[in-house]
Structures are given as structure tokens and as C-alpha cells.
Design a protein around this nucleic acid. Structure first.
Lengths: 247, 247
DNA sequence: ACAATAGTCCCGCACGTGCGGGATAGAAAC
DNA sequence: GTTTCTATCCCGCACGTGCGGGACTATTGT
């Protein structure tokens, strides 16, 4: 159960009141929420494999900390389900008949952003991973995850964390470091300065006055930049720089 | 100790040979490496607080799995140190006199990419966090991390993971989801199609032929798009879309 | 039935920009 | 000591593009 206490700042991560553990959590609107641990965590599972789904329900029923509310073999009505049952946590498979899990997490996050959605899948490929993260997933676990780690992950996401399988976390961190993997275009320092202003959308004239050099000089630099980046115009250059994270 | 076995693909994550646990790891050049667990993990610590640094060394010396090679109160010679001692793991503070930890991780990763660098800091602000990740950090732990979790994190990073404190992991995942926080510009479906082609760097003429509509129609759409995005030209539109992750 | 919206198409004008030239001076590299 | 690189500046031409108009059609919502 969540209590939304707007505009209240609380420094410590856990406090004890009358024996009840209260854990801090920030929601996406920067309001503070508290999770009272002696309430069971309500849980909904989306998983099309009947065996696995029933095993998961059974697993969570075995621990009094969890209250598996419902489970579904598809997420066609994910938004409604989230609104009606108001689950704390959702475990979401990706590959399901009908609506995919990627679309499912998007709908749940739109319908009820407080619900933490943990992806639970065999997929390790970048495309599905980043699609889920952009859709608002709060965690990403591979199906080889042990039950103990599954429990930990749910605790972690309830405490404001983002549980990920190690190889997934690595992929996520690597995505920040991709600019080193892209080739080096051998731009001079001055050309980098010009390019940095260009990718902010500034015109040649503005760049010239910003760098205290002549309009024609900037154009000359831009010509060289376009050659080095193998593009034909400023728009292509901006697109290339921003999408490949050069500079 | 690492053995670099190029072009060899190994499916399982752990195998047992004669009682020695071998763990798979991928390095950034896509070659496979194996970590033999009965070898102690060599470790270098950069931390300017003498008390904390000595405590950490003491902590790691207490466990035979770790071999703290050296420790430094600044990372001015980080690149040389990495090349000479070839550590498996580096624990790196951020706020140090002289070269900052952000610069330190960058230098270490350039000098010896195989070395896993885990940031170990009090800083939770986005700026420093993402600067470290872009510099190539393999993990990010807050100083409130317990010793047990510290050990786990080093195991995790050696096995190809990316250990992060929960609040850090959350920040990282949230960074993927920022497009929902940006405002909605109320673009029509057709305008989105035009804009998607524009941000690829395509000219008006190309967009027209790609969408099977007239050149003038595309220009008309672009005019409306610029109005809705509050920009004055295509370059600004591309810059805004790609940097704010609209669409 | 009417208004609003989206999508399509067209014109002309002015300016920005890409392209192909050329030139000079200082610094760095060989 | 010559070459190469970098930064700086200039010209003219052709095309792309932003801006301000207008017009027609289909759909949607009231």
C-alpha cells in the first residue's frame, strides 16, 4: 500500500515506527511515497506459458510477503487490469499471443504509473530490451533468474530500485559508452566547436558571431566537417552526430 | 587472471573443470574471456580519504578471494597504474584532489579496457553519474553500500555484470523513459511520419517521394511541424527532436 | 448542417546554405 | 627547409528552404 506525501523530503531510506518498517520511494513526479513492509505486496503476473505462470503463482503464494492477485496468459487488457486491481508489482513476459509485453508495460505505466513493472523474459537482445526500458519498465530479469533473486528483485523494486540481471545491466551501461565504439572522425578542435554549435540548431551566422570569426570561415569549417562526417548537408550532420552520439 | 580466447563461443555461463569454477566474460572487443575463480581478484583502490581507503584495503585483505594490489589517494597516474599492475577491478572514488574520478575511469578504460572500474562515491546527482557511465564505468556503488554487497558487486562485475546501488539503477532506467516527461506537441500522424524522415537528415524532396506526396505538401507539413515544435528551421527541429527524444 | 481539423496542392520572394573555386599566415611535422 | 595542417577570409552560382499567402477535399464532432 502506498501513501503519497507530496512535497515532503525524507532523508533516510528506512525508518522504524512501532515495529513497522517504512521504506522511502520516489515516484516519477518527485513526490515521496512510503511502503509499509508488513502489508503483503500485491502482484500480477503476465505469462503465456501455463506451467511457468502457475509455478510462479505457487512460488509467491508460498511466502506471506506476497499476495499474487491474479495471473493472465496475455496482456490484452493490461491497462484495465492495472486500474482495477492496483497491483504494487507486475511481472511481465514479452513474447505473448496478442499484445506484446512491450506494449503491455506501456499501457500499464500509462494507466497506473505507481505500479512497478518487472520484465521477465528469455530475450537478451538489445532491441526488445531498450524498447521495454523506453516503455517504462522498472526492471528486467531473465528467466534463468533464481527464485531467491526473484524475491530480492521485488523487494528492490518496491524500495525504488531497478532490478536487472547482470548481463542486462551490462548492456544498459554499455549503451552509455557507445560513442567510444563509433569511429573517430578526426575533427580538429575548432571543427568540434563549430559542430557543437551546429547541433544545437544554430545557423552559420549565429555560429560565426558566437566564435568571433567570420561567416565565411564558419562555412569553410562546415564544408570540412561535412567531408569528414561523409554527409552532404547540415541536417544530415546534426542527425548523424545526435543519433550516433559523436561529440 | 584473464585468458583471452578469441573467436571462441561458449554458451553456458559457468562450467566446472577439475573443481575449478570458470566464468565466462565478454570484453568490449567481443572476444571471450574466462575467469578462473580460485585465482584471487587483483584490486586497486583510488580514494582520497585515508581512513576509508585503509579500511577498504583491510576489508579486502581479510578475504582470500581478493588481492588488493595497491591503493592511491589520487588518480593522477591512473593510466600508468592500470598498465603496470593490470588490475582485474578498480574501485574509484570521484571527488579527489587533482584528477577527478570521472577523468580517472576514462584514462583507465583507454589504457586497459579489460579492467573493470566500479565507481564508489557519495554522489547521487545525475551529472556525475552519467559522466562516469559515458566514461566507461562498469558499476556505480554509493558509499553506504555494505561490505557484503561490495564483495557481491566485485563478483558481479567479474562475471560480466554491472553492479549498481538500487537508486542509481533506477536513475539509469529512468533516463530511458524521459520522453514521457517531455511535453506532447500534438503532432498529427502524418506530421510524425514527415518528422521521422526529417530527423534522418532527408531533404524535403526525398521525404516527398518517400511518402508519395507532393514536394509542396511536405513543405506545408514541415511549416506546421515547426510551429508546433516552436522552432524556426529544420535544423532546430532535428536538434530538438533528437536531444529531447521526442518521437 | 456547420465548424473544425487534417491532408493535399500551388505561387512567389528572400535568405540560407552546399559546392567549387582561391588566398594568406602561422604552426607543426618531416 | 620544405611540406602539411589548421585557421582564417573571400567570390559566385545554384538550389534548398522558411514565410506568407490561397485553395480544395474528406473526415470528424457538435
Amino acid at each position: 500500500m502506498w501513501f503519497n506525501l507530496l512535497s515532503f523530503i525524507f532523508a533516510a531510506h528506512q525508518i522504524l515506527i512501532a515495529g513497522i518498517r517504512i521504506t522511502q520511494k520516489w515516484d516519477s513526479n518527485f513526490s515521496v511515497m512510503f511502503y509499509i513492509s508488513n502489508m503483503p505486496i500485491s502482484l500480477i503476473i503476465f505469462e503465456d506459458n501455463d506451467h511457468l505462470r502457475e509455478s510462479l503463482v505457487c512460488l509467491f503464494k508460498s511466502d506471506e510477503r506476497y499476495r499474487p492477485v491474479n495471473d493472465y496468459s496475455n496482456c490484452n487488457d493490461a491497462a484495465t487490469i492495472a486500474r482495477v486491481y492496483e497491483p504494487d508489482v507486475v511481472l511481465m513476459d514479452i513474447d505473448m499471443p496478442g499484445t506484446s509485453g512491450v506494449e503491455g508495460v506501456k499501457q500499464i505505466k500509462e494507466a497506473r504509473p505507481q505500479t512497478a513493472v518487472i520484465m521477465y523474459t528469455v530475450f537478451e537482445n538489445d532491441e526488445k530490451l531498450f524498447a521495454c526500458l523506453c516503455a517504462g519498465a522498472n526492471g528486467y530479469l531473465l528467466k534463468k533468474t533464481s527464485p531467491a533473486r526473484l524475491f530480492d528483485a521485488i523487494e528492490e523494486v518496491m524500495e525504488g530500485g531497478a532490478p536487472m540481471s547482470p548481463s542486462i545491466a551490462r548492456k544498459v551501461l554499455d549503451s552509455f559508452n557507445q560513442k567510444k565504439q563509433t569511429q573517430h572522425y578526426d575533427l580538429s578542435q575548432r571543427e568540434i566547436e563549430v559542430l557543437q554549435l551546429l547541433v544545437k540548431g544554430h545557423s552559420t551566422k549565429i555560429i560565426a558571431s558566437a566564435l568571433f570569426i567570420s561567416f565565411e570561415t564558419v562555412r569553410s569549417h562546415l564544408k570540412n566537417i561535412y567531408n569528414k562526417l561523409h554527409v552532404n548537408c547540415g541536417k544530415e550532420a546534426i542527425a548523424k552526430v545526435l543519433s550516433e552520439r559523436i561529440i
